[in-house]
Amino acid sequence: MKKWYVDQGPDSDVVMSCRIRLARNFAGFPYPHGSTPEIRREVMDRTVAALMHGNGGLFLQFRFIDFTRLPSVERQVLVEKHLVSKELAESKIECGVIINDSENISIMINEEDHLRIQCLGAGLQLEELWTLADRIDSFLSESIDFAYDNKFGYLTCCPTNIGTAIRASAMLHLPALVMTGYIKGILESITKLGVAVRGMFGENTETTGNVFQISNQVTLGRTEHDIVTGVRSLSNQIVGQERELRKELLAQNGIRLVDRIHRSYGVLRNARIISADETLQKLSDVRLGVNLGLLPGIDETRLNALMLDIQPGNIQQKLGRALRPDDRDATRASLVREVMQMQDL
């Protein structure tokens, strides 16, 4: 089965992927962290039963991964594929995840809320993902009584998620906005609109690879439809600006930009040791080169997949064992070389 992240979606020259996440809780049960092992187990069992043994409704193949028996390297891989959160991977309580074959749907069980239904897609297709998440939610609610209040809507562990309990997000690759410095102004105005922005890779302080995630902050007092179209149309605007700037950069600073792209391509094709950070930076340049038609032989979706594959956990899983950082960098370099040479110009 083809995984979602090797697909090319709409507006994929700028939007790498998008996600809809719904939080749901079982009525009458305490939230996972203040709960008992027995209740947490029951939440897992009932969710698995509802999804995997329920007939009709959803024509999807799911598998359940119980985290209580899962090695941490394998948990890490799921984090890098964006299928589970870091919090779930590091959780010490009874928890797990349900994933479908093409890995575009994941249902985290016993994270902060009992259920976190996530739908992932390539490119910008938030409306479609919302329709899918909505269907899964409706299907689950036929057999599970969700905590809902007429006034506050769907109740969640954290008050920031209450109401629709929806989080719509898009992952944007914005090299031109970063290079020109316009990104600062954009980030500032976005935050004022009640939309959150954060760097996708790298720890807190800076963004590696020019990849940003934007998502709605308000979940209460607006409909899901409004929230989803809000994030989508904001993404569309940023996409438009990024495209304009790319054209302008190429027109005004052509030779420098082309040089930078080819240098980065050269590094990825030839390096023998490379860190995850450097790989992301160079991949960002190469991706831009592909989008600008400068590196015609390279498949953009391979680059997206590579951004995930070169993360430490994925590298280790490929080799089937834990690695020292030095070995990891060498292994990463050879993986990157292999992919780059496969895509010969």
Binding site: D134, D137, F146, F152, G153, G163, G221, R222, T223, E224
Partner: peptide, 13 residues
């Protein structure tokens, strides 16, 4: 947090 205190979106069922 949200500027509102009343839910107007989807409801169960």
């Amino acid at each position: 947090i949200h500027g509102h205190a009343r839910h107007i979106g989807k409801h169960p069922g």
